[in-house]
């Protein structure tokens, strides 16, 4: 499926794609929600070890497309997709690709923190347990600790690992969800407006964390906030009415967009 990628769009390829390998890519993707044509003929290349941000007005399809990247749309009966999405060149919608396995490679963090009604430890141990990643209890404990550390949460919760995860503050809960996602060693982490339910301080903390995580992961973040996209991402894709209008280096999108619609959006004409 990894046909020599045709040029994404007429403007020059984002600089960043030149020095980073492709992690995920979409070619000619169309998504329908019942009668609604939510994504129209979309193609994009997402680089590894970088943060790609999807921005656009509400209802532009950015979350729908994000959910297509780990086949979360499979859970919605009325949702149909055509076209190809690849992970390391492999089509993730191939009949012999199990979404269960795919999702252990492509993790996801949601808009509202959704820790399970279990202890902090059990929340993080959930993934390793179901995927059978740890042979022993000690190994599991170590992995939980590491994941919590990577999510920058360990220091705050190390004394109450066995208390319910729902008792944490909103920002801590979201970091717990990030720790939960990285506990299964994914390659890609999808974040669907991860800070929209958080206060500014918690948001700053998460943004810092995202910046750290990009050393090891391919991160795709959907955000409502253009400032956030500008702060955390290296690549920005602007969605409008189901189409990918513009995609390029973040600094370029925000300083010199080529498309009028992007220009209008970032200057606050609509959105």
């Amino acid at each position: 499926m990894n046909d020599a990628s045709p040029p994404l769009m007429k403007p020059p390829l984002p600089r960043i794609l030149a020095d980073r390998p492709e992690k995920m890519a979409a070619r000619g993707v169309n998504i329908h929600y019942g009668d609604k044509h939510a994504i129209k003929d979309l193609s994009i290349t997402i680089p590894d070890r970088a943060v790609s941000a999807f921005i656009g007005p509400s209802g532009c399809g950015k979350s729908t497309f994000l959910r297509a990247l780990n086949r979360m749309n499979d859970t919605i009966p009325s949702c149909r997709m055509t076209g190809a999405i690849t992970l390391d060149g492999r089509n993730i919608n191939d009949p012999d690709v199990d979404p269960v396995q795919l999702r252990s490679h492509v993790g996801m963090v949601f808009q509202k923190p959704n820790p399970f009604p279990k202890s902090i430890f059990e929340n993080v141990a959930y993934g390793p347990r179901i995927h059978g990643l740890c042979a022993s209890k000690a190994e599991l404990e170590q992995r939980v600790e590491e994941s919590l550390k990577k999510a920058g949460l360990f220091g705050e919760v190390k004394d109450r690992l066995h208390q319910p995860g729902t008792g944490l503050s909103g920002g801590q809960q979201q970091r717990l969800c990030i720790a939960r996602a990285i506990a299964v060693n994914p390659e890609v982490i999808l974040m669907d407006e991860p800070c929209s339910a958080l206060d500014p301080i918690a948001t700053a903390r998460i943004e810092e964390l995202i910046d750290e995580l990009r050393q090891n992961f391919c991160i795709v973040i959907v955000t409502h906030s253009m400032q956030q996209a500008a702060r955390v991402s290296q690549l920005t894709a602007f969605f409008h009415l189901g189409t990918l209008v513009e995609f390029g280096d973040t600094d370029k999108i925000f300083t010199a967009p080529t498309d009028q619609r992007t220009q209008d959006y970032i200057t606050g004409r609509y959105g």
């Binding site: 795919l102 949601f110 959704n114 279990k118 993934g127 179901i130």
Partner: peptide
């Protein structure tokens, strides 16, 4: 639904989601 989504996005199968997240909740 967010709990189900959280579990499925971790790569849990629907039955694991039911047994480990939905039913305990």
């Amino acid at each position: 639904q967010s709990l189900r989504d959280g579990s499925l996005a971790m790569g849990a199968t629907p039955s694991e989601t039911v047994k480990r997240v939905v039913l305990p909740a």
